[in-house]
């Protein structure tokens, strides 16, 4: 329903380079990227605040690239929410309906309905200035949803909130989505928002959107090394491939398919098995490793290992870590399936 085609724009230090993606009605599209990637610029172009240098934006087949923002039916919630501090909560939410010249009773009915859904009905008579950060966010969302836009654009909606509040609002956002069924594009730099809200995920870096796909797919199969690094993957190795064998430093790794020449591969840390004893299996890559150090990640332990000249990181559960009684400078055996290896 919303389609972005080859969208390019430069503005100040930011730029968008030939962005392409499409979302369907009711979809929640999360765009993940580091700060400075151009995420806000992309939203502003979709909202109509900027006219792109080239490319098109289509909404239900209609070209809206140069349509003024007030005629687009796309609601935009900027990072600081852009609330009207001089108005009451009610008037903020009613704003879009008032400028559309809705009848007074209709406005009241709709505002109260949405306020009830978002649990802010008790705030309607308050001045926006005196609200907490979480309340401000709800008002901003209510104000955007009440005009029933085709798409809602959310720019880092959780970035100003503390962790507890953020987790609570993330859960509520899921609920609101189910109940109100809106289409959204949500940009963020935080993975947990992408994982818990997104139907679809786009990764944006340096003005480019290099990968768009299902959330799980993007996380498990990053398309480029840069995306893998951004997603926090370690174990990126470089070597020389001869058919199904990769020579890196002085170890041999079995690859899922045949490659020739220089290749870069990534081995997801969660796919590396650790054991105290040698595992005999022809289909696996098996190595002896030294535990250099370990790091507590909460439920998981991250082991930093050395295999000959190569450094690898592996994740294992705290329980098995305790079971195996792993200590620093000890030897362990690592193994991973060739199919777990991701080749860029």
């Amino acid at each position: 329903m919303l389609k972005v085609e080859d969208l390019s724009k430069s503005w100040k230090d930011f730029s968008l380079k030939r962005i392409n993606f499409e979302i369907q009605k009711g979809e929640y599209f999360v765009i993940l990227g580091p700060s400075g990637a151009g995420k806000t610029l992309l939203l502003e172009a979709i909202a109509g605040i900027f006219i792109p240098d080239s490319g098109r934006i289509l909404l239900n087949g209609e070209d809206i690239t140069e349509k003024p923002p007030e005629k687009r039916e796309i609601a935009y919630i900027p990072q600081n929410y852009g609330l009207f501090d001089h108005m009451k909560v009610f008037d903020n939410i009613a704003y879009g309906l008032k400028v559309r010249k809705f009848a007074r009773e209709e406005i009241r009915k709709q505002v109260e309905e949405i306020a009830k859904a978002l649990d802010i009905k008790h705030l309607l008579d308050r001045k926006v200035k005196n609200l907490s950060a979480g309340e401000r966010q709800r008002v901003a969302i209510a104000r955007a949803i009440v005009i029933s836009p085709q798409v809602i654009l959310l720019d880092e909606p959780f970035s100003n909130l503390d962790v507890n509040l953020k987790n609570k609002l993330l859960r509520e956002m899921k609920r609101w989505r189910r109940e109100l069924n809106f289409t959204a594009i949500h940009v963020t730099h935080s993975f947990d928002e992408a994982l818990s809200l997104g139907d679809k995920l786009g990764i944006m870096m340096n003005g480019k959107m290099d990968q768009v796909g299902e959330v799980k797919e993007v996380f498990s199969k990053p398309k480029t090394e840069d995306i893998a690094r951004f997603l926090g993957y370690e174990n990126i190795l470089e070597g020389h491939a001869e058919g199904k064998i990769l020579y890196s430093e002085n170890i041999k790794i079995e690859l899922p398919q045949e490659f020739y020449g220089r290749v870069r591969v990534m081995i997801p840390p969660q796919n590396i098995l650790i054991s105290k004893n040698m595992i005999f299996s022809s289909a696996r890559n098996n190595f002896k490793a030294i535990v250099e150090e370990f790091e507590d990640l909460g439920a998981l332990i991250k082991l930093k290992l050395r295999v000959n000249g190569i450094k690898l990181a592996a994740h294992l559960t705290k329980a098995s870590f305790v079971d195996m009684g792993i200590k620093e400078d000890e030897e362990v055996y690592v193994s991973f399936k060739s199919t777990a290896i991701h080749v860029f």
Binding site: G48, P69, E70, R72, Y81, V99, A144
Partner: peptide, 9 residues
Amino acid sequence: EASYTLGAN
């Protein structure tokens, strides 16, 4: 900007 995207001219 918020005002524009909410439909105000």
